[in-house]
Design a protein around this nucleic acid. Sequence first.
DNA 1: CAACATCTGCTTGTATACGAACAATTCTGC
DNA 2: GCAGAATTGTTCGTATACAAGCAGATGTTG
Lengths: 143, 143
Amino acid sequence: MSKEMKKPDPYQLSHQIGYNLRRANQRHVAIFSKHVEGLTPTQFAVLARLWECGALSQNKLGRLTAMDSATIKGVVERLRTKGLVQSSADQNDQRLRLVDLTQAGRAAFEVGLDQALAARLETVEGLTPEEIEVFETLLAKLI
Amino acid sequence: MSKEMKKPDPYQLSHQIGYNLRRANQRHVAIFSKHVEGLTPTQFAVLARLWECGALSQNKLGRLTAMDSATIKGVVERLRTKGLVQSSADQNDQRLRLVDLTQAGRAAFEVGLDQALAARLETVEGLTPEEIEVFETLLAKLI
DNA sequence: CAACATCTGCTTGTATACGAACAATTCTGC
DNA sequence: GCAGAATTGTTCGTATACAAGCAGATGTTG
């Protein structure tokens, strides 16, 4: 090593949690796309939440899927175009648009469920079951 | 609870690692933006990697910062516009564009360093030091 | 009741991320 | 040496994410 002396790396990008969160997220998105055809993780999250909760206002749906109002508007629109959700004005509050699953959306969730769970398995395949549990717990503390 | 019987939630979105990775990443990006002015985490990653490695080809830089060629092109262009990097043709391989920090880029990295480390601290503030170490280790196994 | 604050959905612009495609350049194997 | 494969950078289109801003509707307070 006849190179000039390098200052020790003060940041060490590869060890930064933020950087690695991004990489883990990217990896998960790629795996999800491999398993679940025609739906992004974000779109599937919307289907899942509507399946769980029933009709929600668009803004509430965004809050329950960690998306801001601009983002949820786009996602709902694309799902509506796919025929998987429907939206309508709320009779009780003129500000709200209610979003609900269509039959096709219900079916898409149910078909996609096994695929999404397979994607989940592949995402964590480098960890033991105990590690998975620890990771989930710590991750939940981070958000 | 006189509601009709609900089927148990087969997916439990809030417990899905993929969903929580996205939320953790989103949280980190928001914290980073609070601490580091004028640079996104991704842009800072580029500065950090160039500081660490010196001049790199654009494609190599993208690979070392987990960005594909379309994304790194945009990020480099925006950093170039800010005067923080310069790029030039490689004399030895006509396909390559070499990207390097400018003096201003060097300075931006050094100024941003403490801010980025503060962002990191805030991102993990819900965890004990031991938990942080475990999380980092498990996260590294995921990517 | 009215003024003000808050909420909702929408629009716009910027940044990231990726797939597909392409042209030019370099590498590889015969 | 040459054909084919691989690499690089660029372009384009789609999806997500967010900040800022806005109009209209609803909630809160005096």
